[in-house]
Design a protein around this nucleic acid. Structure first.
Length: 390
RNA sequence: GGGUAGGUACCGAAGUGGCCAAACGGGGCGGACUGUAAAUCCGCUGGGCUUACGCCUUCAGUGGUUCGAAUCCACUCCUGCCCA
């Protein structure tokens, strides 16, 4: 095990805020593995790279010899974390949650070291809590404290609803920390309030208080808003290798630096930005799909886009038998069969008219064209997609 | 429970009897240029039919008034605000 000071240096990398460093150092000096808590609410069946920032940090703790406690918020997920939200989250049923939790856990273990991870479901303690206990817990937090929060304040000012159940959320998350006796809790910067409530509750229970360890929120592909499913600017960890690679290649250079820091914990290598980006994409794909897949995705990208060798690249093979002869129908079928994307005929027609469609390297711009589809030729659909005629 | 303001396309937001498939902005998409980056320029952006002029459907839901409704009326559902 490394010295407490050396550990602190490593852990500080990429962190947005630590409350506070001196306390953390003191805990590291205890010489025992620390309980490092990370709570996740399985609100969706798969996680995206944004989540992995905290997971990656947790892994770093593990590598330094500490114990990860992964809390699956099967109970809290039904409430919905209001943090940073402009609306209440939709409440989920327990079945949905448990279903999500399973795949969630599986994906988290791609990053975490299973040997040093304890996974617990917070339904274990919340389900059996009595109303009396709930009330008692509520007595420890004031409405004023809750209302100081930026997200609630904004919603109140804008006249949007803040539901009472949402107010319970930070208390529940804080109670999790008491139950698992957390030494450190990792979270995004939007978790500041929730994690601080944990500290308060621990103090009331006579426990040592946890360190608040905040990681920056990872910007989504647009480079502006945080990565989130509902904004559609995310990269899912279970996405297909080529898909993942392509998305990562589309980010700006500034964003690339952030991804290097937060996803790989490194600085951008001093090479051509494009090569740096390819390395980033390759390594991330490799992390979730294996080295081989990473290299294959890189190669695929080089063929398709760097060399623009559309004809020799790999595309989904589509059988156009039974499809109408006109190009619009063909394009619609190509999207549907090759990519499971439902395009309207209007959209398809527009693509044709705007010169996006190519068959065997010939542009087709007449929506009335009825080209012959020779087997093996490539039909280019848009910037990123094409299909091979089967 | 009472009062009041609203529910328009992916989102925000105009429109308050015909000129509305619906201004404008954002987002998205395509083309050019590139490093599938950024920046920039051009174009498209509800769905279906049609070679095309054009036609059909659509503004929370249902029913009505009118030659004609997103726009007027009635009821229903949903949301905010004020009062209790």
């Amino acid at each position: 095990m490394q010295s407490p000071e050396a550990q602190l240096e490593i852990l500080k990398r990429g962190a947005a805020q630590i409350i506070n460093e001196a306390e953390l150092l003191a805990k590291l000096r205890l010489g025992r593995p620390l309980n490092v808590k990370l709570g996740v609410d399985p609100t969706a069946p798969d996680i995206h790279l944004g989540f992995t920032v905290a997971l990656t940090k947790l892994r770093q703790f593990q590598d330094l010899g500490h114990q990860a406690i992964l809390i699956i918020g099967d109970f809290t997920a039904m409430i919905g974390d209001p943090s940073g939200r402009s609306k209440a989250r939709p409440q989920l049923t327990h079945d949905q949650v448990m279903n999500n939790a399973r795949s969630f856990q599986e994906q988290a273990y791609k990053i975490l070291d299973p040997e040093r991870t304890r996974t617990v479901f917070n339904g274990q303690w919340f389900e059996m809590m009595t109303f009396e206990e709930v009330i008692k817990l509520n007595g420890r937090v004031t409405l004023q404290q809750m209302l100081q929060r930026e997200d609630f304040k904004n919603r109140l000012e804008r006249g949007d609803a803040v539901h009472l159940h949402e107010i319970q959320y930070p208390i529940m998350q804080g109670w999790d920390s008491v139950v698992v006796k957390a030494d450190v809790e990792i979270g995004g910067t939007d978790q500041l309030f929730n994690i601080l409530v944990g500290r308060d509750l621990q103090r009331e229970e006579g426990q040592p208080q946890q360190i608040v360890f905040l990681m920056p929120l990872l910007e989504g592909l647009d480079g502006v808003q945080k990565m989130s499913k509902s904004l559609g600017n995310y990269v899912g960890v279970s996405e297909a290798p080529t898909e993942m690679f392509g998305k990562l290649m589309s980010i700006t250079d500034t964003l690339m630096a952030r991804y290097y820091l937060l996803l790989l914990g490194e600085d951008v290598p001093d090479i051509h930005p494009m090569d740096a980006k390819k390395q980033l994409a390759r390594r991330i794909v490799a992390r979730y799909h294996g080295e081989e897949a990473g290299n294959a995705a890189l190669e695929d990208f080089n063929t398709k886009f760097s060399k623009r060798d559309v004809e020799n690249a790999e595309w989904p093979v589509v059988d156009f038998a039974g499809v109408n002869q006109d190009i619009v129908s063909i394009v619609v079928a190509g999207y549907e069969k090759g990519y499971q994307i439902a395009k309207s005929r209007g959209d398809a027609r527009r693509l044709v008219e705007q010169g996006s469609i190519q068959l065997h390297e010939e542009k087709i711009t007449d929506p009335k064209a009825t080209p012959t589809l020779a087997a093996g030729t490539v039909l280019k659909l848009d910037k990123k997609r094409a299909v091979r005629v089967g």
